[in-house]
Design a binder for these strands. Structure first.
Lengths: 333, 333
DNA sequence: CTGAAAGCGCTAACAC
DNA sequence: GTGTTAGCGCTTTCAG
């Protein structure tokens, strides 16, 4: 930058003012501006984000803390964040919590130290009270995506899990299913809300409901279905709390020789890309990922209306049922 | 940091020396060190990476440029990099090239400007000569993973695509298949090498070989299989160049009413998590992702032996065939 | 409208 | 062994 200043014959401050571009209270002579810009280009000047950040300006870094990067759903979410962020000229610093909430806290510290301009939390981190606490004392805007609709003290964007789950269950009921099972991962965030909706729906004939907990991966889904099928009166339909679980269940149904949807209906949640390519294609709930991410970034970047009276905003987007081949009429008993 | 110095009654430099921890040429009094550490902890001191980086020290940032973050295989790779990096205390800055090589260049500039301590390239970027050029003039260590085995001027870690593909084809041949098709994505990097191996293997009866190009996603795989099946003499086995393509093909086979592996054998490449849960489980080639990432990071961090005589290193890891249910004996004609 | 100067938080010569 | 000092590259008052 000094070079640019020298080459142009103006002072560094002027160069800074020009290059920062922002509406400095003080206007600059148009020709000076042009000369500076030209020289900067010629000299291949590139601002040093470190120095900028050090001085308190924006670092153009967006911190992302994800609980489980392994999860294909979150992998897609990270992609969406990355795309959306780059459109705003931001770079993404990825923090992986490896499923441990303490790590998320550490990460948080790291990202704050790195002067990220904003932080996005992917997935439910509320089981770690200290995180939320620290977050509250933070000066940089933050938004939690897919935190589960129970609102915490930080702004969040969530999906209406209840509506999605009820849509699935109504669909199943219309097909004549009564004995329906729910497969859930850890009772956390979105999954928890989906389970609650399931219990609510089945409240009038709870004897037909069963719930299996498992790890939220393909094997978990497979194992859960295995246990369900070993029951004396197995369900005729399985509503999995995520697509990954559903895909695992589909595979186990296959190895057990069950035909889907003739012998068993299976549904997922999220509509990850693989859902449409499952065999048979998975009936699931489509998550408006792009919209949720866009909404979240808008909240942290465009609308820093934090300490407003009504508390942090918690928009709730509506998912939609995607009807595909993995659900069919219940078998006549 | 000044606070810590004042609280301890020593100078800032001493604090720096203690906290940097590194083997400073100059030793420090044990009790001073302790007092400083204690005070730092008490005051909740956290170093400012920006200032550090500005001063020329390491930023503990690892830049990652990925061509296509959508690709589940690379999503897994990013995960591996993130895990491996965090074990070394590094944070990952993710740059997504959106499939465009020019973006990769821009990203490169950004990451360099951010003073990343090293850069990892995920996937083949060599179609953009300027990238490679710029890379050469760079001062920070860099490594390319899954670049395709044709070595460029930058250090890389690759997998032996030829060995993997030949293993697949031999397996298929042993099952009695002669009419074998290859489904490839863009003729880039690893995929290209796999195709070459395919052509090599089929060289003695090229009339039985067919090659379909498509986009490297689920739909691409499905469409390619569709075209293959419409041929007058369709193949009895399909070797897809990636698991994603294979999974897409599996789905199309299903919708076309073909039974795998009875009517058609299908193989993939990469062994992404979904491969094992496919219906039927996919015979594929396992990619040693963790090892490759670990090797790559070792190259950039532990062994900055750049300008050595023999040119940049290009270790080639060996993949292994995973035999599952999607391959079976060729149909008696 | 532009220049001079003071740091942001930290490290690394160089003294003592 | 420890303190002093000079910046890293930039933004930002405060004067001209």
């Amino acid at each position: 930058m000094r070079d640019v200043a020298e080459a142009t014959g103006v002072s560094q401050s002027t160069v800074s003012r020009v290059l920062t571009g922002a509406a400095t209270a003080v206007p600059i002579a148009p020709d000076t501006r042009e000369r500076v810009i030209e020289a900067a280009k010629r000299l291949g000047y590139r601002p040093n984000p470190l120095a900028r950040g050090l001085r308190g300006a924006r670092t153009m870094l967006l911190g992302v803390i994800v609980r489980e990067i392994t999860d294909p759903f979150f992998a897609g979410a990270i992609e969406a964040v990355s795309i959306e962020a780059s459109q705003r000229g931001y770079n993404v610093v990825l923090g992986h919590a490896h499923g441990h909430a303490e790590e998320a806290i550490a990460l948080w510290g790291v990202l704050e130290a790195r002067h990220c301009d904003a932080i996005v939390l992917l997935g439910d981190m509320r089981d770690q009270p200290r995180l939320i606490e620290d977050l509250h004392g933070a000066r940089i805007p933050i938004v939690a995506l897919w935190q589960g609709s129970r609102s915490a003290d930080i702004p969040s964007v969530d999906v209406d899990n209840r509506a999605g789950m009820l849509a699935v269950l109504r669909h199943l009921a219309e097909l004549g299913h009564r004995r329906i099972a729910f497969i859930g991962g850890r009772r956390l965030g979105d999954i928890r809300d989906r389970e609650d909706a399931f219990r609510e729906f089945m409240a009038d004939h709870p004897e037909d409901a069963s719930v299996e907990y498992t790890s939220n991966d393909l094997e978990g889904g497979a194992d859960a279905l295995g246990r369900l099928l070993d029951q004396p009166l197995p369900p005729t339909a399985v509503a999995a709390s995520t697509d990954v679980l559903a895909l695992g269940a589909l595979h186990r149904a296959y190895t057990r020789g069950l035909r889907v949807p003739d012998d068993l209906s299976v549904t997922g949640f999220d509509d990850i890309p693989f859902a449409a390519a499952a065999i048979p294609a998975l009936t699931t709930v489509r998550m408006p990922v792009r919209e949720m991410v866009a909404t979240g970034l808008r909240m942290v970047f465009d609308d820093p209306s934090d300490g407003s009276a009504a508390g942090p905003p918690h928009p709730l987007l509506i998912p939609s049922l995607v009807h595909r081949g993995s659900t069919g009429p219940a078998r006549r008993p």
